[in-house]
Design a protein around this nucleic acid. Structure first.
Lengths: 341, 341
DNA sequence: TTGAAAGCGCTAACAG
DNA sequence: CTGTTAGCGCTTTCAA
């Protein structure tokens, strides 16, 4: 089936392609009658202009990409959702690139996206969340950012000068810690997260600081890092509970691990929050799906996505948006935490 | 910053663009020495060919799109994940189009995707899941499928002749029903799902049939349809439990509603599965995140995505893949169901 | 092994 | 108000 072009339309309407282009884009006055005939023919053939040709010329594709580590972690769909909603009204479509936290794959995507001439890139997780990102990996992103606008969400690349949107995770962890202290807890542990990721380290540091303010400490044997997943959380919590001395409350790196922790505690015959309090992080939809519902820290996930696109859009249009936007998290108290008995 | 092209490379290497193109694509023999100089220059400028220009010529973009109703429902990321994994090795990138179940938005996306000349489209939810899809909506998809390959996942468009990959949901519902009957339940209810969607109706019908085989019936007052969400499930379960006569077991249209149902039951002081058994559908990651873990029906979600891309890829390459692939669901027994006391 | 040249489908001066 | 024409950056005959 021959795909029809602007030339076919022009010929049938006895006009030049320029005129057809004009009615297509409403970019210059066209006599009403000719416009009408043209439109009729367009309609008749259900003609749709080839966006590739247009993009080639205009040097813009109306496409942006989101690179993220794991679309099955409910945190990310939420960000995507926020981003897509504002992108759509601005006329962008979305490439979604799922990296599985694999740096090679990130590199591949970066390269493909450049070839495909996306108008901008939103980068989450992976290398930008490393406490110490290897220079080559960082350089690759910085290099690319000279060709296509990039904004980093909840991450950073030292000295890159890239635009960033992020949650103040330290503040969030402090909030959660304070909450537990207020409930009377003095023996507080921390679970989950790989110990080379910024998101983990920042939280631990903030918790430690807050504890110190109250003359408490984060004991080494109550600090368990590992994965970000439900099984990971369960595993770590099991380790925690198999010790002679147990904490009375546990901070978790995210909701996934918190849920794992809840399950492990339940298996140990512990009642939550009667015997042990548990706090999550992110306030994903999971938080209200468990029983007991999770006390957790909300990241304004949706807004993170919105702001990322907003910022990207401004850069694309030559504006100069703020280099950094930091969102303040909120503590959401539900039923997984309670006063120390 | 001037973006550099194949011409710049050619000039600097004192060759024609054709030669550069040849080394770029390894499409014809090039003298080793010239190849080397060219590669060196490419390297030097970090040159990457413009995919738009290539696509315009070759009439293929290496891009496929997934249209789905709700990326925050964990069922869909799982499908996406499966699809993307096989797409990536075949050299495709992915547009993700989130429609929020809005038919207008579906139409918009359809139109945009055609303009952008995607190589194929995977369609989930929305209009293809309607028990009675309005002809205009169906026609639009059928029309488009003459220009770009489309495969429908877990849905259908009557008389469209489109390729389909789907789970045998009726079989799944029968499995779940049989399971409850085997546990001794005779008073079985059904919760959730809009009553104009095929996915809901098919399950209800299958449950009813299975019950009938055992001389049982699905009582009208134990059949509650509404939404697919957690709050929806909770609301419907509340209605269910506020009645004088309660069922001893409840089938849910998906995991979301099942979780809502569990929460409602817990609020009513009911123990699960001691007082009431609950079965979900889809086996999303949520199923193992709740306590008690959900007995549910697995859809092989990941495989659904893989097969969709596989099929699309074949169509794109002029092969003739099977028109329909149906996957058999599996019952996953966990802790939310138990024998009737 | 290489180059010249003709497009792919569209937009945007420029000229009328 | 409308047409001519020169590209956008690449691939691919066809000749050499």
């Amino acid at each position: 089936m021959k795909t029809i072009t602007i030339y076919d339309i022009a010929k049938e309407a006895n006009v030049s392609v320029a005129t057809v282009s004009r009615v297509l884009n409403d970019t210059a006055p066209v006599k009403a009658s000719t416009r009408e005939t043209i439109n009729k023919i367009i309609e008749k053939y259900q003609f749709q202009p080839n966006a590739l040709a247009r993009s080639l010329l205009k040097k813009e594709t109306g496409t942006i990409a989101m690179i993220l580590p794991d679309i099955t972690n409910p945190f990310f769909p939420e960000v995507f959702w926020g981003a897509e909603n504002v992108a759509r009204v601005k006329g962008y479509s979305f490439f979604l690139c799922n990296t599985a936290g694999n740096y090679n794959r990130e590199s591949e995507f970066l390269s493909i996206l450049r070839e495909k001439r996306v108008d901008g890139i939103i980068f989450l997780g992976g290398r930008i969340n490393l406490a110490n990102c290897p220079p080559e990996l960082a350089q690759e992103v910085i290099e690319l950012s000279r060709h296509v606008p990039i904004v980093l969400v909840n991450g950073n690349l030292p000295k890159s000068g890239l635009h960033r949107i992020y949650t103040d995770e330290a503040a969030g962890a402090a909030l959660a810690t304070q909450h537990l202290i207020d409930l009377g807890h003095r023996d507080i542990g921390f679970i989950g997260g790989m110990d080379d990721t910024a998101t983990t380290l920042v939280k631990i540091k903030a918790a430690r600081k807050k504890l110190k303010e109250h003359g408490l400490e984060l004991r080494q044997e109550w600090l368990k890092s590992g994965e970000f997943s439900v099984p990971g959380g369960r595993e770590l919590m099991n380790q925690m509970l198999d010790q002679k001395h147990r904490p009375t409350a546990v901070l978790c790196v995210n909701d996934f691990t918190a849920i794992g922790a809840i399950k492990a505690a339940a298996q140990h015959g512990l009642h939550i929050p009667g015997d042990i309090s548990i706090v999550g992080f992110d306030d994903t939809p999971l938080a209200t799906a468990v029983i007991p519902e999770l006390t957790t820290v909300s990241q304004n996930t949706y807004e993170l996505g919105e702001l990322a696109v907003e910022t990207l859009h401004q850069i694309i249009n030559g504006k100069n948006p703020k280099k950094q936007i930091v969102l303040q998290p909120k503590l959401i108290v539900r039923s997984s935490t309670g006063a120390l008995k």
